[in-house]
Write a protein that binds this DNA or RNA. Structure first.
Lengths: 207, 207
DNA sequence: GGCGACTGATACAGTACTGTATCGGATACA
DNA sequence: TGTATCCGATACAGTACTGTATCAGTCGCC
């Protein structure tokens, strides 16, 4: 059997193919955010990306597969970004600085939040995905935990690992909840400030 | 022109019609929660309700209209429930009791939360609905504000109206965020407890 | 620079959903 | 109890989407 026989298993990964795939992923992010995954069609994504449906089916077996690929891509990028932020954080930072860093690192765009809603909704309806989604969120909490601990230590507060995870959960909850409020009331300029305030309160109260 | 001429304007509201409408609404809640609004079809709702598509179009012009009717119905019911809880709350309750009351009043079922996600996602994509959705959330905050104030006063804390609204926002954010975590990790029995803990912290820290 | 492999455009069949039109039968009311 | 009203079942046409099959042009590799 010849080594590079028909691509049934692994089509050669050419530059062109990578480019196509990436543009499809990017277009999918926009379309899913705009219309919602449930209302998005293969045609929508192709039109946005500037490809035909042939190109799509050459790269993905279905919309579901593309959706999952997008989710994987986004979440690994996010974890990497958080890890990077933690790595460059010096010891001795104040709690306010920690909150600023966390807020600055986590995604802020309308599109990313809408996508997150889509991912969450999808996960809640597909238990196998829910497991993966929950694991991803745990990874995120584990990533920000060290930076939170730094801020607490700077304030003279020491906490157990279990308590730290609870604080990380509270931070995640406030982030999710407040960001939804901000999206619903884009005209309310006080909300970002309020969000930071609540985050600081939640962290200090937890320590 | 005869008064009760053709139903073009207002079809007579018979008992039968009310029943049909209610069963369609109930079925819609289940179907939208299960499949998501984007994936739900008129046929799905009819099948679940035990009616034919003719019955559906006799009562609603489109799925969108049914969706909005469901949203209206649910949100007014929720506001009423909260108002009722506030009305029967005696002065002098502790903060923990207040939290318990708030938690007990706000919707808890998986279905109601999934529906809320659908409503939020829809609102974020339709600005005219977003306004209405935001107004509804404001009404809810305004409803729980008095009960929160009661709890704070019992602890000897007095707050301004503005500060009270900020606390209500924090409570809403924690509720939304923590409930999502609970749904994603149904096996984690510690989360409801943690949610109460965070709620208490957020309220006291705000006072 | 030429050849073979593969990408992505186009065409097509099949399916699913929507919305309307029609009509039998149930229901409210005298 | 009779009857006019209208509810809701069924049938149908039109549309949109999916997934596959085919093929021309292009790219990678020697």
């Amino acid at each position: 059997m010849p080594t590079s026989r028909t691509g049934s298993a692994t089509p050669r990964v050419t530059k062109r193919r990578v480019e196509t795939r990436n543009r499809l992923l990017e277009a999918a992010g926009q379309v899913f955010a705009e219309r919602g995954f449930g209302r998005a069609t293969v045609e929508d994504v192709c039109e946005r990306a500037g490809y035909s449906r042939g190109a799509f089916y050459s790269n993905f077996a279905s919309l579901d597969e593309l959706f999952f690929a997008l989710y994987t891509s986004q979440s690994s990028a996010l974890v990497a970004a958080v890890a990077q932020a933690v790595a460059v954080t010096p010891p001795g930072v104040t709690l306010e600085q920690v909150v600023d860093r966390v807020v600055a690192t986590l995604p802020i765009s309308r599109e990313s939040h809408l996508l997150n809603l889509e991912f969450a909704a999808y996960a809640l309806r597909h238990s196998e995905i829910a497991t993966s989604f929950a694991a991803h969120r745990r990874a995120l909490r584990d990533s920000i935990a060290p930076i939170l601990e730094l801020g607490l230590l700077a304030g003279g507060l020491a906490v157990t690992a279990g308590r730290l995870d609870q604080i990380a959960r509270a931070v995640a909850a406030v982030q999710d909840g407040m960001f939804l409020q901000e999206l619903l009331e884009p005209g309310n300029a006080d909300l970002p400030t309020l969000r930071r305030k609540i985050l600081v309160e939640v962290i200090t109260a937890g320590g």
